[in-house]
Simulated assay, not measured.
Amino acid sequence: MDRANLALADWLARQGGSVRLVAHRVADSLLRYPNVRFVRVPKPANAYLLGEPLLDAVGRFWAARTLAQGGQVVANGGNCEVPAANWVHYVHGAHAPEPVENPLRRLKGYVSHRVFLRREQRALRRARIILANSERTRQDLLAATGVDASRVHVVYLGGDPARFASTSPELRREARASLGWSAERRVALFVGALGDRRKGFDTLFQAWARLCSRPEWDVDLCVVGTGAQRETWERAAREQGLDGRIRFLGFREDVPRLLAAADLLVSPTRYESYGLGVHEALCVGIPALVSRSAGVAERYPPSLQGLLLEDPEDVAELVRRLESWRAQGGEWMPGVAALSSELRAWTWDAMAAAVVARLEA
């Protein structure tokens, strides 16, 4: 279940009113509330392309009942075409996926994208109010759908300051020791799926290969995430002699500990409506190198503009940014600390309250 949707649903449930959740699945934690009703929608063959029509039909049925009873309805993107609020976390019209697997998967990705794009346009044009998770997303929505700008409002994603707390030197040492990481070597972290090119790992891999050819480069890379291309990248690392410099950790549930132990997060993403992983790294208190086009980059102050990549395709630029961080990263830490404090103050509850306030207004 999307983390932002979970946060909104949990906040609403704690307010005591009736909450209906129409979805393929929801977090188990929500089912403990007696005022929450989960309407489960099947997803045939575990395929979103097959499940979307069912989600739309069941969603429209319950949306009509909820609106008739005086309630509020919030849909996500093209999931459900209703004359209510639509909260957008990803704009299909802003990015076409680039699968790198076999031709059949590429064909499936192309067909799915075209279907999702049409559904997105219909749903957003019918929505009475649209909420975007960044100004980047808002501009993408306006360009992709042509809806009136007065209908689209920005509410930034929140965070969990208890889970992603500012890390002290002592906690950092403990985290590194528990992971078996050397106290002497620096570690950069990449967090993202390895199934297509959206997260930009191909650019990072090429940059890392260049840097590791230099004896003075003393930073290791840990890769958190999985996907169809993981084995391909692991094989490429072995073939280029980088298996000791790039470690593939797979799917992990201890991301807060990994962030606390790392020195830097690198995210040369080609499309990111917001960038929750970057947000969480900053909350922990480590610098995050991210593409300027990512929504979260809007929150970087002038003092941290050196952490923003102009072009996620430019390997040479990424190399220069990484070298700059290694040489003068300490100069960015006061700005990182200030932004970290600001982001930790904007909790998931604050976000949920802001969403509801906007809808009620």
Rank of each mutant, 00 (worst) to 15 (best):
L50K: 01
P312Y: 02
R210M: 13
E310F: 11
R235A: 13
H113L: 09
W87M: 14
S291I: 01
R245H: 14
N35E: 07
F190W: 05
R37V: 13
S150M: 04
L30N: 07
A281C: 03
N35Y: 06
G109D: 08
L276E: 07
E253L: 15
R198K: 09
A64F: 11
F38H: 11
K108I: 13
P42M: 03
H89S: 08
A261L: 04
L259F: 08
T137D: 05
F116C: 14
G70S: 00
I130P: 02
A13I: 00
N133T: 08
Q328Y: 08
D196K: 06
T226S: 13
R270W: 10
R65Y: 07
A327D: 14
P287T: 02
D220W: 13
S168Q: 07
L339T: 00
G78A: 10
E184D: 13
A144M: 09
R163C: 06
E81S: 15
E170W: 11
M351P: 09
D243G: 03
N76Y: 15
P161A: 08
D349V: 05
R252N: 02
L282G: 01
L55R: 05
G195Q: 07
L194F: 11
R197Q: 14
L31E: 09
S29C: 09
S293R: 11
E101H: 13
V319I: 12
F205Y: 06
R60A: 04
T145D: 04
R114N: 12
A207D: 03
R25S: 15
V154C: 04
L211F: 07
T269P: 06
E342G: 06
G195S: 14
A338C: 06
A261M: 08
V147G: 07
T226H: 10
D202Q: 14
H24G: 12
I129A: 15
G109R: 04
A64S: 12
Q72P: 10
P169A: 01
G109Q: 02
R126P: 05
A96T: 12
G241S: 07
G78E: 05
Q206S: 15
L107I: 13
R173H: 10
P256K: 01
A228E: 15
R40M: 10
V115N: 06
R128N: 14
R299K: 10
W217M: 03
G51S: 09
L309A: 09
F251G: 09
S134I: 06
D243L: 03
E239C: 05
W62G: 03
R136S: 13
N133Q: 04
V355S: 01
G241Q: 01
V147P: 06
R245Y: 13
V36F: 04
P169E: 05
L117W: 11
D263H: 08
R173Y: 07
R25D: 15
G158R: 01
G71W: 10
N76T: 13
V155S: 03
S267W: 12
P287W: 05
N5E: 04
P302M: 02
E331K: 15
A207R: 06
L211P: 03
W87Y: 15
G277W: 10
D28C: 07
P215H: 12
D254C: 05
A57R: 13
H279C: 05
S168A: 00
F190A: 02
